Simulated assay, not measured.
Amino acid sequence: MINEEIKNPWKTLSGEVKYDNPWIKVTEFQVINPAGGRGIYGKIHFKNKAIGIVAVDEALNTWLVGQYRYALDAWSWEIPEGGGPLNEPPLNAAKRELQEETGLTATKWSQIIRLHTSNSVTDEEGFIFLAEDLQQGEASLEETEADLKVWKLPLKDALQMVIDGKITDSMSVMALLMVARKFQV
């Protein structure tokens, strides 16, 4: 079944851009759904890739970043994350985001997850990396990150925050669970 070609059961009749800015484009499509009924479908197209990094040192410490998330109207602890231009290799964006938010650089990188952030409303693609062999430097925060807090803590404590529901960002949850399994935390 996995290797079978599945044909698209949706038929697109028309599409109209309802909103467009430098980060996202929202399009409303008139469709015929798989059962033959007419309807609408909204799609959010992100103009960047989602990038996440779990940095782990030799003592199995990791780094979280905390910031107030406007869309949630709440504070959020997360792995270092950001956006990477669609035409840029995801690893380049990951290296930049880790340095910008934490001041860390790494000599060992591995991609641990490629994902779609919400396949029901968006085509956004995400990439999460593990960064090891770390060196500390100076962070270079963007204007929107002026309230960003950086927290170095044991990986096991970050995992417990996931289990306790204190980390709710989906990329962070997936990434920390994957890395905790890798290191058998």
Rank of each mutant, 00 (worst) to 15 (best):
E97A: 04
Y70C: 00
L86M: 12
H116F: 09
D157S: 14
V54M: 10
F127S: 01
T107A: 05
L72F: 12
W151Y: 11
F129V: 04
L64M: 10
K156S: 15
E124Y: 00
G126H: 00
I112A: 02
E138W: 01
Q160R: 14
S110H: 02
E143F: 13
G103K: 03
E81T: 12
V56S: 03
A71S: 14
D147H: 10
Q99I: 02
K156T: 13
F127R: 01
L86E: 06
E124A: 04
V56D: 02
L64T: 10
A158C: 06
E143V: 14
Y70Q: 13
I128T: 12
G82T: 04
S76Y: 01
I113Q: 11
D157L: 10
H45N: 05
W109N: 01
D133L: 02
Q111E: 15
W63S: 04
G83I: 02
E145F: 13
I113E: 15
S110V: 11
G137D: 11
T107L: 03
V121H: 09
F129L: 06
L104C: 06
A94K: 09
I113A: 12
S118T: 05
N48Q: 13
Q111Y: 00
L91E: 15
E81K: 09
W151A: 10
A93G: 09
A93S: 15
T105Y: 00
P90M: 07
Q67K: 10
H45C: 00
L155E: 04
W151R: 15
D147E: 14
D123G: 01
E124R: 11
E138L: 06
E145G: 05
G42K: 06
I113T: 03
D147T: 15
K95T: 06
W151I: 10
T102E: 06
Q67S: 13
L155W: 03
T102R: 07
P80W: 11
L130K: 08
E138H: 08
L91W: 03
P80T: 10
V65A: 12
A146P: 00
A146Q: 13
L155S: 06
Q99M: 09
K149D: 12
V56K: 04
G137K: 07
A50C: 13
S140W: 05
D73K: 15
A139P: 13
K149P: 04
I79V: 15
L148G: 08
D57W: 00
L86K: 13
T105H: 01
S76W: 01
L134C: 05
A55F: 03
S120T: 14
A139K: 14
G103M: 03
V56Q: 02
A139V: 02
L60R: 14
H116W: 08
G126R: 01
A131T: 04
L130I: 10
L60K: 12
L159S: 03
E97Y: 12
G103D: 06
Q160M: 09
N119T: 07
K156G: 02
A93L: 07
T107Y: 01
I53F: 03
E125L: 10
Y70I: 08
H116Y: 10
